[in-house]
Design a protein around this nucleic acid. Structure first.
Lengths: 230, 230
DNA sequence: TAGATTGTTAATCGATTAACAATC
DNA sequence: TAGATTGTTAATCGATTAACAATC
């Protein structure tokens, strides 16, 4: 597995979108696509797509474009989707359940091996094919199974406590749905935060304040382009 | 309510973090904070924070800093958190439930007024204080209540159908958890996407490929700073 | 007044876009 | 070969950081 240093987060965050769309094309039986076509479908520039892909190597053929299935597989490899990283999930509330099901049915590089909660009513209930365990068993479970990643679907305060324990047990990778960002405490962790609250407030801002000038310009441009076509 | 044009999405996406942290400080009874202190707590530069805030006006006092409660309230106003935008939610699965509860207990500018599903087993069940309605009632409900925002917690295919209907009914603001991005179809919509899948794949990439050079440098710098302090 | 910290301008850095030679 | 489209370099644009005068 090659290491791709110096690739910016901006590029990395676009890879899943490419992967998703290419999978879609592949499923539809489309074999070939150019950067221009891709850019139109995704709302990006062709230049950016070529620039992004060339961070990892030349996957296209001049004068032809990209072979959909090949490019899709390559991006899957780059993303490390066959990793099968052992994962535990903390918190069996509604969000935890949704995430557990998601991870079970669409395993994007991770394998859920344990779900934990401290609520006696939840313990034993089956979620994503797994019986919810008592959080009291967490330490022993981790020593035995050595999970690579932990998902936090618990409140902020619980993450502060559990984070310390899991860090002590060697876990360095986290998918965090709480407000507490463990990476500020332990800088050598890899944390992917999903702050639903922030997302909602951003939406609130956008509704309240209207579009930015840039967005307004793009919209105008798009509208005039549409009416030219039609 | 002033309109702040020309504010970039990068700035807007940091506002909720400021707001969240300032609320936290306020709750702890802290009255004053400088941009330097804030920057240390949030892992940003003081310069960036001042630059960000000055997009909206001068909220600080030279030689003193910022009054926590005042700054917090101002950011809340900028975000439009008192908007109380009427919101409907489509999809009463686990994710829909988690989101409905979230929106009911922490109303960040939105008021949930209806939850819809097409599964007869879900209809009538209470979620976030609301009885789940049959999606067949959706159109009549919207004509009467005129919601400002819709949350999509349904699969891609359902969003394609429902999106068209809701757009036709005048709804232009969406919080979207599906893979289907309605803003590509209707450019005059405001859509905030939450792609959990993409987030997970990004994490997978980061685990598989290690830190970027920039992150590695920052980590080294932080470690040496820590050992100098201790 | 002296010290501190903002608001704001200028400098740097990084990301996106444009252009075009290479080549299938 | 001619046409198309990539890979890659150069130009532009935007965002972040640094610096410092203004001022509390």
């Amino acid at each position: 597995m090659p290491k791709h240093e110096n690739v910016s987060m901006s590029v990395i965050r676009r890879l899943p979108r490419y992967y998703r769309f290419l999978s879609h094309l592949k499923a539809k039986g489309i074999t070939r696509i150019s950067s221009t076509e891709l850019s139109q479908k995704l709302g990006l520039t062709a230049s950016q797509i070529r620039q992004d892909l060339n961070c990892f190597g030349g996957f296209g053929q001049q004068g032809y474009g990209y072979i959909v299935s090949q490019l899709c597989d390559e991006i899957g490899k780059i993303l490390g989707l066959s990793g099968g990283y052992k994962t535990i999930l903390l918190g069996a509330g509604n969000l935890g359940r949704a995430i557990a099901n998601h991870m079970t049915f669409e395993s994007d590089g991770f394998k859920l091996i344990g779900v934990f909660d401290n609520d006696p009513n939840q313990i034993g209930v089956t979620i994503g094919g797994l019986a919810v365990r008592d959080v009291a068993e967490l330490e022993a479970f981790c020593r035995k199974e050595k999970p690579a990643m932990a998902v936090f679907c618990v409140p902020r305060s619980a993450v502060e406590q559990l984070g310390e324990m899991l860090y002590g047990l060697g876990i360095r990778n986290f998918w965090n749905f709480s407000h507490y960002d463990i990476s500020l405490q332990y800088p050598d962790t890899i944390v992917e935060n999903v702050h639903l609250n922030d997302s909602l407030m951003t939406l609130c801002y956008r509704i309240s304040n209207g579009r930015t000038k840039k967005q307004e310009d793009e919209l105008k441009q798009k509208n005039s382009a549409d009416s030219t076509v039609g």
